[in-house]
Design a protein around this nucleic acid. Sequence first.
DNA 1: CGACTTATTGATGCACTTCAAGCGACGTGG
DNA 2: CCACGTCGCTTGAAGTGCATCAATAAGTCG
Lengths: 254, 254
Amino acid sequence: MQDALIRKLESFEELSDADRAALRTFVPRVRQVSARTDLIQEGDLPGDVHLILDGYACRYKVLPDGQRQIMAFFVPGDFCDLNVFILDQMDHSIGTISPCTVAEIPRQAIENVITHHPQVTKAMMWCALVDEAVLREWLVNNGNRQADRRIAHLFCELLLRLEAVGRVSDNSYAFPFTQHDIADTMSLTSVHVNRTLQLLRGLNLITLQHRVLTILDVEQLKAYCDFNPNYLHLRNARWSGRRQVPWLSSVQGG
Amino acid sequence: MQDALIRKLESFEELSDADRAALRTFVPRVRQVSARTDLIQEGDLPGDVHLILDGYACRYKVLPDGQRQIMAFFVPGDFCDLNVFILDQMDHSIGTISPCTVAEIPRQAIENVITHHPQVTKAMMWCALVDEAVLREWLVNNGNRQADRRIAHLFCELLLRLEAVGRVSDNSYAFPFTQHDIADTMSLTSVHVNRTLQLLRGLNLITLQHRVLTILDVEQLKAYCDFNPNYLHLRNARWSGRRQVPWLSSVQGG
DNA sequence: CGACTTATTGATGCACTTCAAGCGACGTGG
DNA sequence: CCACGTCGCTTGAAGTGCATCAATAAGTCG
Protein backbone atom coordinates (compact mmCIF):
# COMPACT_ATOMS: atom_id res chain seq x y z
CA MET A 1 0.00 0.00 0.00
CA GLN A 2 3.07 2.26 0.05
CA ASP A 3 2.54 2.30 -3.67
CA ALA A 4 -0.33 4.68 -3.14
CA LEU A 5 2.05 7.18 -1.66
CA ILE A 6 4.69 6.69 -4.33
CA ARG A 7 2.25 7.04 -7.20
CA LYS A 8 0.74 10.15 -5.70
CA LEU A 9 4.13 11.81 -5.42
CA GLU A 10 5.24 10.63 -8.83
CA SER A 11 2.36 12.48 -10.38
CA PHE A 12 4.24 15.64 -9.40
CA GLU A 13 7.94 14.76 -9.74
CA GLU A 14 9.94 11.99 -11.28
CA LEU A 15 11.44 9.89 -8.50
CA SER A 16 14.61 7.85 -8.58
CA ASP A 17 14.79 4.20 -7.60
CA ALA A 18 16.49 5.32 -4.41
CA ASP A 19 13.60 7.66 -3.68
CA ARG A 20 11.10 4.90 -4.21
CA ALA A 21 13.11 2.50 -2.11
CA ALA A 22 13.21 5.01 0.70
CA LEU A 23 9.45 5.45 0.57
CA ARG A 24 9.03 1.71 0.79
CA THR A 25 11.05 1.41 3.99
CA PHE A 26 8.16 2.61 6.10
CA VAL A 27 4.94 0.69 6.29
CA PRO A 28 1.90 2.90 6.67
CA ARG A 29 -1.01 1.58 8.64
CA VAL A 30 -4.23 1.43 6.67
CA ARG A 31 -7.36 2.14 8.66
CA GLN A 32 -11.07 2.06 8.01
CA VAL A 33 -12.68 5.16 9.47
CA SER A 34 -16.43 5.58 9.68
CA ALA A 35 -18.27 8.65 8.43
CA ARG A 36 -18.36 11.82 10.50
CA THR A 37 -15.26 10.97 12.50
CA ASP A 38 -12.30 13.22 13.26
CA LEU A 39 -8.87 12.16 12.09
CA ILE A 40 -7.20 15.02 13.95
CA GLN A 41 -8.58 17.79 16.11
CA GLU A 42 -7.66 21.40 16.66
CA GLY A 43 -5.04 21.67 19.38
CA ASP A 44 -3.55 18.24 18.72
CA LEU A 45 0.12 17.89 18.00
CA PRO A 46 0.40 16.83 14.37
CA GLY A 47 1.15 13.13 14.35
CA ASP A 48 1.12 10.82 11.39
CA VAL A 49 0.30 12.14 7.97
CA HIS A 50 -3.00 10.94 6.50
CA LEU A 51 -3.55 9.94 2.90
CA ILE A 52 -7.12 9.26 1.77
CA LEU A 53 -7.35 6.04 -0.23
CA ASP A 54 -11.10 5.94 -0.41
CA GLY A 55 -13.92 8.20 0.72
CA TYR A 56 -14.29 11.92 1.31
CA ALA A 57 -13.00 14.03 4.20
CA CYS A 58 -12.69 17.71 5.03
CA ARG A 59 -10.65 20.29 6.87
CA TYR A 60 -12.73 22.49 9.15
CA LYS A 61 -12.74 24.90 12.02
CA VAL A 62 -15.44 25.58 14.61
CA LEU A 63 -15.95 29.14 15.83
CA PRO A 64 -16.79 30.08 19.42
CA ASP A 65 -20.42 30.60 18.42
CA GLY A 66 -20.67 27.06 17.07
CA GLN A 67 -20.44 27.97 13.38
CA ARG A 68 -18.44 25.47 11.38
CA GLN A 69 -16.36 26.53 8.40
CA ILE A 70 -15.16 23.84 6.03
CA MET A 71 -11.88 24.92 4.44
CA ALA A 72 -11.02 22.00 2.18
CA PHE A 73 -12.38 18.76 0.82
CA PHE A 74 -10.23 15.68 0.48
CA VAL A 75 -10.95 13.08 -2.13
CA PRO A 76 -9.19 9.78 -2.82
CA GLY A 77 -5.52 10.44 -3.43
CA ASP A 78 -5.29 13.56 -1.28
CA PHE A 79 -2.98 14.13 1.65
CA CYS A 80 -4.92 15.65 4.53
CA ASP A 81 -2.16 17.18 6.53
CA LEU A 82 1.10 17.01 4.68
CA ASN A 83 1.09 20.74 4.97
CA VAL A 84 0.76 20.94 8.71
CA PHE A 85 2.83 18.08 9.98
CA ILE A 86 5.73 20.44 10.39
CA LEU A 87 3.80 22.89 12.56
CA ASP A 88 3.70 22.93 16.32
CA GLN A 89 -0.01 22.54 16.84
CA MET A 90 -3.11 21.97 14.74
CA ASP A 91 -5.11 25.15 14.26
CA HIS A 92 -8.04 23.25 12.77
CA SER A 93 -9.57 19.78 12.60
CA ILE A 94 -9.84 17.14 9.91
CA GLY A 95 -12.82 14.82 9.78
CA THR A 96 -14.39 12.31 7.44
CA ILE A 97 -17.56 13.00 5.50
CA SER A 98 -18.19 9.46 4.28
CA PRO A 99 -16.62 6.21 5.48
CA CYS A 100 -12.96 6.36 4.51
CA THR A 101 -9.96 4.17 3.95
CA VAL A 102 -6.99 6.10 5.27
CA ALA A 103 -3.26 5.40 5.10
CA GLU A 104 -1.28 6.79 8.02
CA ILE A 105 2.33 7.61 7.34
CA PRO A 106 4.67 8.06 10.30
CA ARG A 107 5.80 11.63 10.73
CA GLN A 108 9.35 10.53 11.37
CA ALA A 109 9.46 8.87 7.99
CA ILE A 110 8.55 12.10 6.28
CA GLU A 111 11.16 14.03 8.22
CA ASN A 112 13.68 11.47 7.14
CA VAL A 113 12.73 11.81 3.51
CA ILE A 114 13.06 15.58 3.62
CA THR A 115 16.61 15.19 4.84
CA HIS A 116 17.75 12.64 2.31
CA HIS A 117 15.48 12.80 -0.74
CA PRO A 118 15.12 16.25 -2.29
CA GLN A 119 12.98 15.05 -5.20
CA VAL A 120 10.47 13.58 -2.83
CA THR A 121 10.56 16.80 -0.85
CA LYS A 122 9.78 18.80 -3.96
CA ALA A 123 6.90 16.51 -4.80
CA MET A 124 5.49 17.04 -1.32
CA MET A 125 5.85 20.80 -1.68
CA TRP A 126 3.90 20.54 -4.93
CA CYS A 127 1.05 18.84 -3.10
CA ALA A 128 1.00 21.54 -0.48
CA LEU A 129 1.10 24.34 -3.03
CA VAL A 130 -1.79 22.97 -5.00
CA ASP A 131 -3.75 22.74 -1.75
CA GLU A 132 -3.03 26.36 -1.12
CA ALA A 133 -4.04 27.35 -4.64
CA VAL A 134 -7.38 25.65 -4.13
CA LEU A 135 -7.82 27.47 -0.86
CA ARG A 136 -7.17 30.80 -2.56
CA GLU A 137 -9.80 30.00 -5.15
CA TRP A 138 -12.28 29.21 -2.41
CA LEU A 139 -11.66 32.64 -0.93
CA VAL A 140 -12.34 34.19 -4.32
CA ASN A 141 -15.37 32.01 -4.85
CA ASN A 142 -16.99 32.64 -1.48
CA GLY A 143 -16.28 36.32 -1.57
CA ASN A 144 -17.21 37.30 -5.08
CA ARG A 145 -19.83 34.99 -6.48
CA GLN A 146 -23.38 34.54 -5.38
CA ALA A 147 -24.81 31.31 -4.14
CA ASP A 148 -25.76 29.68 -7.44
CA ARG A 149 -22.42 30.34 -9.15
CA ARG A 150 -20.57 29.51 -5.97
CA ILE A 151 -22.08 26.08 -5.67
CA ALA A 152 -21.71 25.47 -9.40
CA HIS A 153 -18.04 26.29 -9.05
CA LEU A 154 -17.62 23.69 -6.34
CA PHE A 155 -19.30 21.11 -8.53
CA CYS A 156 -16.89 21.89 -11.37
CA GLU A 157 -13.88 21.70 -9.10
CA LEU A 158 -14.88 18.33 -7.70
CA LEU A 159 -15.56 17.05 -11.20
CA LEU A 160 -12.01 17.80 -12.34
CA ARG A 161 -10.34 16.60 -9.17
CA LEU A 162 -12.27 13.36 -9.16
CA GLU A 163 -11.75 12.85 -12.86
CA ALA A 164 -8.02 13.09 -12.26
CA VAL A 165 -8.23 10.06 -10.00
CA GLY A 166 -10.67 8.13 -12.11
CA ARG A 167 -13.71 8.59 -9.92
CA VAL A 168 -16.08 10.07 -12.48
CA SER A 169 -18.18 8.24 -15.00
CA ASP A 170 -20.70 9.85 -17.33
CA ASN A 171 -20.17 13.18 -15.60
CA SER A 172 -21.44 11.64 -12.37
CA TYR A 173 -19.66 11.27 -9.11
CA ALA A 174 -20.33 10.26 -5.52
CA PHE A 175 -21.58 13.17 -3.48
CA PRO A 176 -21.90 12.21 0.19
CA PHE A 177 -22.12 15.81 1.41
CA THR A 178 -25.28 17.02 3.07
CA GLN A 179 -26.75 20.37 2.18
CA HIS A 180 -25.54 21.47 5.58
CA ASP A 181 -21.98 20.51 4.63
CA ILE A 182 -22.25 22.62 1.50
CA ALA A 183 -23.63 25.47 3.55
CA ASP A 184 -20.66 25.33 5.94
CA THR A 185 -18.32 25.29 2.98
CA MET A 186 -19.80 28.19 1.08
CA SER A 187 -20.75 30.30 4.09
CA LEU A 188 -24.45 29.99 3.44
CA THR A 189 -27.37 28.53 5.34
CA SER A 190 -28.63 25.09 4.49
CA VAL A 191 -32.00 26.65 3.68
CA HIS A 192 -30.44 28.78 1.02
CA VAL A 193 -28.36 25.90 -0.30
CA ASN A 194 -31.56 23.95 -0.69
CA ARG A 195 -33.24 26.68 -2.69
CA THR A 196 -30.13 27.19 -4.79
CA LEU A 197 -29.88 23.51 -5.63
CA GLN A 198 -33.46 23.63 -6.82
CA LEU A 199 -32.51 26.54 -9.04
CA LEU A 200 -29.60 24.62 -10.57
CA ARG A 201 -31.82 21.61 -11.10
CA GLY A 202 -34.44 23.83 -12.67
CA LEU A 203 -31.86 25.12 -15.13
CA ASN A 204 -31.10 21.53 -16.11
CA LEU A 205 -27.47 21.98 -15.12
CA ILE A 206 -27.30 19.13 -12.61
CA THR A 207 -29.16 16.36 -10.93
CA LEU A 208 -28.41 15.33 -7.37
CA GLN A 209 -30.14 12.33 -5.91
CA HIS A 210 -29.21 9.39 -3.75
CA ARG A 211 -25.87 11.04 -3.03
CA VAL A 212 -24.84 11.03 -6.66
CA LEU A 213 -24.22 14.27 -8.50
CA THR A 214 -24.59 14.36 -12.27
CA ILE A 215 -23.53 17.32 -14.33
CA LEU A 216 -25.87 17.42 -17.28
CA ASP A 217 -23.85 19.84 -19.40
CA VAL A 218 -20.29 20.38 -18.28
CA GLU A 219 -19.46 23.25 -20.61
CA GLN A 220 -22.61 25.07 -19.73
CA LEU A 221 -21.99 24.66 -16.02
CA LYS A 222 -18.43 25.92 -16.38
CA ALA A 223 -19.63 28.93 -18.31
CA TYR A 224 -22.33 29.52 -15.73
CA CYS A 225 -19.79 30.08 -12.95
CA ASP A 226 -16.82 31.37 -14.97
CA PHE A 227 -14.84 28.31 -14.08
CA ASN A 228 -11.14 28.55 -14.86
CA PRO A 229 -9.30 25.36 -13.94
CA ASN A 230 -5.82 26.86 -13.97
CA TYR A 231 -5.70 27.07 -10.18
CA LEU A 232 -5.89 23.29 -9.89
CA HIS A 233 -2.54 23.01 -11.67
CA LEU A 234 -3.61 19.66 -13.00
CA ARG A 235 -1.50 19.89 -16.16
CA ASN A 236 -2.93 17.33 -18.53
CA ALA A 237 0.57 16.24 -19.40
CA ARG A 238 0.94 14.89 -15.93
CA TRP A 239 -2.46 13.62 -15.03
CA SER A 240 -4.23 12.38 -18.08
CA GLY A 241 -1.09 11.69 -20.05
CA ARG A 242 0.16 9.19 -17.59
CA ARG A 243 -1.34 6.01 -16.31
CA GLN A 244 -4.72 6.16 -14.68
CA VAL A 245 -4.08 5.81 -10.97
CA PRO A 246 -4.83 2.13 -10.51
CA TRP A 247 -4.76 2.10 -6.73
CA LEU A 248 -8.01 4.02 -6.68
CA SER A 249 -10.74 1.91 -8.06
CA SER A 250 -13.47 0.95 -5.65
CA VAL A 251 -16.69 2.86 -5.60
CA GLN A 252 -17.27 5.41 -2.91
CA GLY A 253 -20.07 4.47 -0.55
CA GLY A 254 -22.33 7.26 0.75
CA MET B 1 21.50 42.04 2.43
CA GLN B 2 21.48 38.23 2.33
CA ASP B 3 21.29 38.58 6.07
CA ALA B 4 17.67 39.52 5.71
CA LEU B 5 16.98 36.14 4.20
CA ILE B 6 19.03 34.25 6.72
CA ARG B 7 17.46 35.95 9.70
CA LYS B 8 14.00 35.38 8.34
CA LEU B 9 14.61 31.66 7.95
CA GLU B 10 16.38 31.37 11.29
CA SER B 11 13.28 32.59 13.00
CA PHE B 12 11.77 29.24 12.01
CA GLU B 13 14.63 26.75 12.15
CA GLU B 14 18.15 26.71 13.54
CA LEU B 15 20.59 26.80 10.66
CA SER B 16 24.11 25.42 10.57
CA ASP B 17 27.13 27.44 9.49
CA ALA B 18 27.08 25.49 6.26
CA ASP B 19 23.45 26.45 5.69
CA ARG B 20 24.25 30.09 6.27
CA ALA B 21 27.27 29.93 4.03
CA ALA B 22 25.16 28.45 1.27
CA LEU B 23 22.62 31.22 1.58
CA ARG B 24 25.39 33.77 1.31
CA THR B 25 26.64 32.42 -1.99
CA PHE B 26 23.88 34.08 -3.93
CA VAL B 27 23.53 37.82 -3.99
CA PRO B 28 19.94 39.00 -4.20
CA ARG B 29 19.22 42.20 -6.04
CA VAL B 30 17.55 44.84 -3.95
CA ARG B 31 15.05 46.99 -5.80
CA GLN B 32 12.95 50.01 -4.96
CA VAL B 33 9.45 49.56 -6.29
CA SER B 34 6.89 52.33 -6.33
CA ALA B 35 3.39 51.98 -4.94
CA ARG B 36 0.67 50.22 -6.93
CA THR B 37 3.10 48.25 -9.09
CA ASP B 38 2.97 44.56 -9.91
CA LEU B 39 5.91 42.39 -8.92
CA ILE B 40 4.48 39.39 -10.80
CA GLN B 41 1.33 38.93 -12.81
CA GLU B 42 -1.07 36.07 -13.33
CA GLY B 43 0.13 33.87 -16.15
CA ASP B 44 3.82 34.64 -15.65
CA LEU B 45 6.28 31.87 -15.07
CA PRO B 46 7.45 32.20 -11.50
CA GLY B 47 10.93 33.74 -11.60
CA ASP B 48 12.91 35.07 -8.68
CA VAL B 49 11.50 34.90 -5.20
CA HIS B 50 10.60 38.24 -3.63
CA LEU B 51 11.24 39.19 -0.03
CA ILE B 52 9.75 42.45 1.24
CA LEU B 53 12.30 44.47 3.19
CA ASP B 54 10.19 47.57 3.54
CA GLY B 55 6.66 48.56 2.57
CA TYR B 56 3.40 46.67 2.07
CA ALA B 57 2.32 44.45 -0.82
CA CYS B 58 -0.51 42.06 -1.56
CA ARG B 59 -1.48 38.94 -3.44
CA TYR B 60 -4.59 39.36 -5.57
CA LYS B 61 -6.66 38.00 -8.38
CA VAL B 62 -8.91 39.85 -10.83
CA LEU B 63 -12.13 38.18 -11.94
CA PRO B 64 -13.55 38.40 -15.47
CA ASP B 65 -16.07 41.00 -14.30
CA GLY B 66 -13.29 43.25 -13.02
CA GLN B 67 -13.73 42.44 -9.34
CA ARG B 68 -10.43 42.26 -7.48
CA GLN B 69 -9.94 39.88 -4.58
CA ILE B 70 -6.96 40.45 -2.32
CA MET B 71 -5.83 37.14 -0.85
CA ALA B 72 -2.86 38.12 1.30
CA PHE B 73 -0.98 41.09 2.64
CA PHE B 74 2.79 41.15 2.81
CA VAL B 75 4.59 43.22 5.40
CA PRO B 76 8.31 43.70 5.92
CA GLY B 77 9.99 40.36 6.39
CA ASP B 78 7.49 38.39 4.31
CA PHE B 79 8.22 36.23 1.29
CA CYS B 80 5.74 36.97 -1.46
CA ASP B 81 6.04 33.87 -3.56
CA LEU B 82 8.19 31.32 -1.85
CA ASN B 83 5.14 29.13 -2.06
CA VAL B 84 4.61 29.36 -5.78
CA PHE B 85 8.10 29.39 -7.20
CA ILE B 86 7.87 25.66 -7.70
CA LEU B 87 4.66 25.84 -9.72
CA ASP B 88 4.40 25.99 -13.46
CA GLN B 89 2.51 29.22 -13.81
CA MET B 90 1.26 32.03 -11.58
CA ASP B 91 -2.47 31.74 -10.94
CA HIS B 92 -2.60 35.20 -9.39
CA SER B 93 -0.69 38.48 -9.24
CA ILE B 94 1.41 40.19 -6.59
CA GLY B 95 1.54 43.96 -6.38
CA THR B 96 2.76 46.66 -4.04
CA ILE B 97 0.42 48.77 -1.95
CA SER B 98 2.96 51.34 -0.78
CA PRO B 99 6.47 52.00 -2.12
CA CYS B 100 8.54 48.94 -1.30
CA THR B 101 12.09 47.79 -0.91
CA VAL B 102 12.23 44.28 -2.31
CA ALA B 103 15.00 41.68 -2.33
CA GLU B 104 14.91 39.32 -5.30
CA ILE B 105 16.40 35.89 -4.76
CA PRO B 106 17.26 33.79 -7.81
CA ARG B 107 15.02 30.80 -8.22
CA GLN B 108 17.93 28.57 -9.05
CA ALA B 109 19.52 29.40 -5.73
CA ILE B 110 16.44 28.21 -3.91
CA GLU B 111 16.30 25.00 -5.94
CA ASN B 112 19.91 24.43 -5.03
CA VAL B 113 19.27 24.92 -1.37
CA ILE B 114 16.40 22.44 -1.39
CA THR B 115 18.73 19.82 -2.78
CA HIS B 116 21.58 20.32 -0.37
CA HIS B 117 20.26 21.98 2.79
CA PRO B 118 17.32 20.25 4.43
CA GLN B 119 17.19 22.58 7.41
CA VAL B 120 16.78 25.54 5.11
CA THR B 121 14.12 23.63 3.22
CA LYS B 122 12.21 23.02 6.42
CA ALA B 123 12.42 26.68 7.32
CA MET B 124 10.99 27.58 3.93
CA MET B 125 8.20 25.06 4.36
CA TRP B 126 7.42 26.72 7.69
CA CYS B 127 7.03 30.07 5.95
CA ALA B 128 4.68 28.59 3.39
CA LEU B 129 2.60 26.81 6.01
CA VAL B 130 2.11 29.92 8.08
CA ASP B 131 0.99 31.70 4.92
CA GLU B 132 -1.55 29.01 4.35
CA ALA B 133 -2.78 29.17 7.93
CA VAL B 134 -3.39 32.88 7.54
CA LEU B 135 -5.26 32.24 4.33
CA ARG B 136 -7.48 29.71 6.08
CA GLU B 137 -8.29 32.24 8.76
CA TRP B 138 -9.22 34.78 6.11
CA LEU B 139 -11.69 32.30 4.69
CA VAL B 140 -13.19 31.86 8.14
CA ASN B 141 -13.19 35.58 8.75
CA ASN B 142 -14.80 36.58 5.47
CA GLY B 143 -17.34 33.83 5.62
CA ASN B 144 -18.53 33.92 9.18
CA ARG B 145 -18.15 37.36 10.66
CA GLN B 146 -19.95 40.51 9.74
CA ALA B 147 -18.23 43.60 8.46
CA ASP B 148 -17.31 45.26 11.76
CA ARG B 149 -15.80 42.13 13.32
CA ARG B 150 -14.19 41.21 10.06
CA ILE B 151 -12.32 44.47 9.73
CA ALA B 152 -11.44 44.44 13.43
CA HIS B 153 -9.95 40.99 12.92
CA LEU B 154 -7.74 42.25 10.13
CA PHE B 155 -6.52 45.09 12.33
CA CYS B 156 -5.62 42.63 15.09
CA GLU B 157 -3.79 40.36 12.69
CA LEU B 158 -1.73 43.18 11.25
CA LEU B 159 -0.94 44.41 14.75
CA LEU B 160 0.59 41.09 15.74
CA ARG B 161 2.41 40.52 12.48
CA LEU B 162 3.89 43.98 12.47
CA GLU B 163 4.77 43.78 16.14
CA ALA B 164 6.75 40.63 15.37
CA VAL B 165 8.98 42.64 13.06
CA GLY B 166 9.21 45.74 15.23
CA ARG B 167 6.94 47.95 13.18
CA VAL B 168 4.46 48.92 15.89
CA SER B 169 4.81 51.66 18.47
CA ASP B 170 2.14 52.69 20.96
CA ASN B 171 -0.30 50.33 19.26
CA SER B 172 0.03 52.33 16.06
CA TYR B 173 1.23 51.19 12.69
CA ALA B 174 1.50 52.42 9.11
CA PHE B 175 -1.69 51.74 7.19
CA PRO B 176 -1.27 52.63 3.52
CA PHE B 177 -4.37 50.72 2.41
CA THR B 178 -7.29 52.59 0.91
CA GLN B 179 -10.82 51.77 1.94
CA HIS B 180 -11.14 50.23 -1.47
CA ASP B 181 -8.22 47.90 -0.70
CA ILE B 182 -9.95 46.82 2.48
CA ALA B 183 -13.16 46.27 0.56
CA ASP B 184 -11.40 44.02 -1.96
CA THR B 185 -9.85 42.10 0.90
CA MET B 186 -12.98 41.54 2.94
CA SER B 187 -15.37 41.10 0.02
CA LEU B 188 -17.29 44.24 0.84
CA THR B 189 -17.96 47.49 -0.99
CA SER B 190 -15.87 50.53 -0.15
CA VAL B 191 -19.08 52.30 0.82
CA HIS B 192 -19.74 49.74 3.48
CA VAL B 193 -16.13 49.75 4.63
CA ASN B 194 -16.43 53.45 5.11
CA ARG B 195 -19.51 53.16 7.25
CA THR B 196 -18.02 50.32 9.23
CA LEU B 197 -14.85 52.27 9.98
CA GLN B 198 -17.00 55.05 11.32
CA LEU B 199 -18.68 52.54 13.57
CA LEU B 200 -15.36 51.28 14.93
CA ARG B 201 -14.21 54.85 15.49
CA GLY B 202 -17.46 55.64 17.24
CA LEU B 203 -16.88 52.73 19.61
CA ASN B 204 -13.48 54.20 20.46
CA LEU B 205 -11.76 51.04 19.32
CA ILE B 206 -9.47 52.65 16.75
CA THR B 207 -8.39 55.82 15.07
CA LEU B 208 -7.28 55.90 11.46
CA GLN B 209 -5.95 59.10 10.00
CA HIS B 210 -3.14 60.12 7.70
CA ARG B 211 -2.54 56.44 6.90
CA VAL B 212 -1.74 55.56 10.49
CA LEU B 213 -3.91 53.11 12.37
CA THR B 214 -4.03 53.27 16.15
CA ILE B 215 -5.70 50.64 18.23
CA LEU B 216 -7.02 52.39 21.30
CA ASP B 217 -7.70 49.30 23.38
CA VAL B 218 -6.09 46.13 22.12
CA GLU B 219 -7.81 43.73 24.49
CA GLN B 220 -11.19 45.21 23.78
CA LEU B 221 -10.64 45.02 20.04
CA LYS B 222 -9.55 41.40 20.28
CA ALA B 223 -12.60 40.54 22.33
CA TYR B 224 -14.78 42.44 19.88
CA CYS B 225 -13.87 40.11 17.03
CA ASP B 226 -13.06 36.91 18.93
CA PHE B 227 -9.47 37.13 17.86
CA ASN B 228 -7.46 33.99 18.48
CA PRO B 229 -3.84 34.40 17.41
CA ASN B 230 -2.98 30.72 17.33
CA TYR B 231 -3.27 30.58 13.54
CA LEU B 232 -0.35 32.97 13.15
CA HIS B 233 1.94 30.39 14.75
CA LEU B 234 4.09 33.20 16.04
CA ARG B 235 5.30 31.27 19.08
CA ASN B 236 6.61 33.89 21.47
CA ALA B 237 9.55 31.68 22.17
CA ARG B 238 10.76 32.26 18.68
CA TRP B 239 9.80 35.77 17.84
CA SER B 240 9.80 37.90 20.93
CA GLY B 241 12.22 35.74 22.84
CA ARG B 242 14.89 36.17 20.27
CA ARG B 243 16.53 39.26 18.95
CA GLN B 244 14.36 41.94 17.49
CA VAL B 245 14.84 41.70 13.74
CA PRO B 246 17.40 44.46 13.25
CA TRP B 247 17.27 44.52 9.48
CA LEU B 248 13.83 46.04 9.57
CA SER B 249 14.01 49.48 11.01
CA SER B 250 13.08 52.31 8.70
CA VAL B 251 9.61 53.82 8.82
CA GLN B 252 7.11 52.83 6.20
CA GLY B 253 6.07 55.71 3.99
CA GLY B 254 2.41 55.85 2.89
C1' DC C 1 -41.61 0.51 13.29
C1' DG C 2 -39.91 4.55 15.82
C1' DA C 3 -36.19 7.92 16.42
C1' DC C 4 -33.37 10.91 14.19
C1' DT C 5 -31.27 13.21 10.60
C1' DT C 6 -31.85 15.57 6.18
C1' DA C 7 -34.57 18.02 2.83
C1' DT C 8 -38.27 21.25 1.77
C1' DT C 9 -41.30 25.26 1.99
C1' DG C 10 -43.16 29.89 3.55
C1' DA C 11 -43.00 34.45 5.77
C1' DT C 12 -40.38 38.12 7.46
C1' DG C 13 -36.15 40.84 8.43
C1' DC C 14 -31.63 42.76 7.86
C1' DA C 15 -26.73 43.36 6.38
C1' DC C 16 -24.90 44.80 2.69
C1' DT C 17 -25.13 46.53 -2.23
C1' DT C 18 -26.10 49.78 -5.72
C1' DC C 19 -26.53 54.19 -7.55
C1' DA C 20 -25.67 58.85 -7.18
C1' DA C 21 -23.96 63.03 -5.62
C1' DG C 22 -20.88 66.07 -2.93
C1' DC C 23 -16.48 67.06 -0.56
C1' DG C 24 -11.67 67.68 0.56
C1' DA C 25 -6.72 66.98 -0.45
C1' DC C 26 -3.32 66.82 -3.69
C1' DG C 27 -0.66 67.62 -7.82
C1' DT C 28 -0.01 69.59 -12.28
C1' DG C 29 0.03 72.88 -15.91
C1' DG C 30 -0.90 77.39 -17.64
C1' DC D 1 -0.87 81.15 -7.76
C1' DC D 2 -5.12 79.85 -9.11
C1' DA D 3 -7.94 76.63 -12.30
C1' DC D 4 -8.75 72.12 -12.85
C1' DG D 5 -8.69 67.09 -12.87
C1' DT D 6 -8.09 63.13 -10.04
C1' DC D 7 -8.54 60.20 -6.26
C1' DG D 8 -10.06 58.85 -1.84
C1' DC D 9 -13.54 59.63 1.50
C1' DT D 10 -18.30 60.61 2.90
C1' DT D 11 -23.33 60.62 2.86
C1' DG D 12 -28.23 59.45 1.49
C1' DA D 13 -31.96 56.61 -0.51
C1' DA D 14 -33.61 52.54 -2.37
C1' DG D 15 -33.09 47.64 -3.58
C1' DT D 16 -31.74 42.62 -2.86
C1' DG D 17 -29.52 38.32 -1.70
C1' DC D 18 -29.40 35.79 1.92
C1' DA D 19 -30.52 34.89 6.95
C1' DT D 20 -33.71 33.74 10.42
C1' DC D 21 -37.50 31.47 12.35
C1' DA D 22 -40.71 27.91 12.11
C1' DA D 23 -43.10 24.02 10.61
C1' DT D 24 -43.61 19.86 7.84
C1' DA D 25 -42.18 16.11 4.79
C1' DA D 26 -39.07 12.66 3.48
C1' DG D 27 -35.49 9.65 4.00
C1' DT D 28 -32.48 6.43 6.78
C1' DC D 29 -30.89 3.38 10.19
C1' DG D 30 -30.89 0.42 14.22
